[in-house]
């Protein structure tokens, strides 16, 4: 059997609905592993994984590292600061040098869209995209899908609205691909300056007022307002943004049904989301974080192994009953 996901995980745009469902189904038993007294299984014993982070990250990097360690892989973390990247080494040179030390997988976070695919096409190791520019953040979308599936039992037919800075968000892009492939209805809501032009062509509805989004949706995925972009004049001010688009307790109280609240983190409390909502009874924000480890374990597990050439060599060797 060849690897079921191919060599790399770059984004959800290139996955089939079956592959996405396979990852979610595979994540289920990995949830249990993290609840065991010994939170470790030997599935990736002897594999070496490099976490190559060219951008700040806490949650994603630690989540990947936990996932790798709970699968018994050996891990090395490389950050752009304090590495030879600062001396001007190119991405491919860095990765090839790492490969020369016999690694098996690279998890990459990079500010440039397309960096993960670029690297995947140039090295033999499996490459997992942990966020590339404004392109995709597939494992975040997968953990969002898993959290929604846990909550609602299925994805098909759900109405999910992504609220906020969609323009700069790779989380939004990956979510849109994943949700649509699994049959959900997707809307985006935010200031027009922060919505990509032509986003309707992805099959997404645009809702201008957050009050309307709350009326429409089963779940809101509230994005972080990327404060570092504020100088660029996308919105008048943070206070203005909160007044018009903030997901506040008063607004959520008018929802016709219990509205599930998601946020990929890190949260700007009082900017895009009200603390009373973030910590409220319908928030699944911490469940998302828990599911992140399971989903990443599933992806690592599915990408590892299944090397056809090795399978040929082992032919004749009996498969255990």
């Amino acid at each position: 059997m060849t690897a079921v996901l191919g060599k790399d995980l770059i984004g959800l745009a290139s996955l089939t609905p079956e592959q996405i469902r396979l990852i979610l189904d595979t994540a289920e038993p990995f949830k249990d592993v993290s609840e065991r007294p010994i939170k470790k299984v030997p599935a990736l014993r002897g594999k070496t994984i490099v976490n190559l982070f060219f951008e700040a990250s806490t949650r994603t990097r630690i989540s990947f590292e936990f996932a790798e360690k709970r699968l018994s892989a050996d891990t090395v973390n490389v950050a752009s600061t304090g590495s030879s990247v600062q001396k001007g080494e190119t991405l491919v040179d860095t990765a090839r040098n790492l490969e020369a030390m016999r690694i098996d997988m690279v998890v990459i976070r990079h500010p440039s869209s397309g960096a993960a695919e670029f690297l995947g096409n140039r090295i033999r190791s499996n490459v997992i995209n942990a966020g590339d520019g404004k392109h995709e953040h597939p494992t975040q979308a997968l953990l969002d899908l898993l959290t929604l599936r846990d909550k609602f039992g299925k994805i098909a037919g759900l109405k999910v609205c992504i609220v906020g800075d969609v323009l700069h968000s790779r989380v939004a892009r990956s979510n849109i691909w994943g949700l649509i492939k699994l049959g959900a209805e997707v809307a985006v809501c935010g200031p027009r300056t922060l919505l990509p032009r032509g986003i309707e062509q992805l099959g997404v509805r645009v809702i201008d007022h957050v009050e309307d989004a709350i009326q429409w949706a089963d779940a809101l995925n509230v994005l972080r307002l990327q404060l570092e972009r504020m100088e660029a004049g996308f919105i008048p001010s943070v206070r203005e943004y909160y007044r018009v688009f903030g997901v506040t307790a008063e607004r959520v109280a008018k929802a016709p049904r219990a509205l599930t609240i998601m946020h990929p983190g890190p949260m700007n409390r009082g900017v895009e989301i009200d603390s009373r909502v973030a910590d409220g009874p319908h928030s699944v924000i911490l469940a998302q974080v828990t599911n992140g480890v399971a989903v990443r374990m599933a992806v690592l597990y599915l990408l590892a192994g299944g090397k056809p050439e090795l399978a040929d060599a082992a032919k004749g060797a009996a498969v255990p009953d």
């Binding site: 690897a3 592993v33 299944g306 090795l310």
Partner: peptide, 22 residues
């Protein structure tokens, strides 16, 4: 007990699609 994650042939046979509960 599902022993899938403790198998010694992940490298050759590849991941098993369905892992049952333990």
């Amino acid at each position: 007990l599902d022993i899938t994650l403790y198998r010694d042939d992940l490298e050759t046979v590849g991941p098993k699609p369905v892992i049952g509960p333990t």
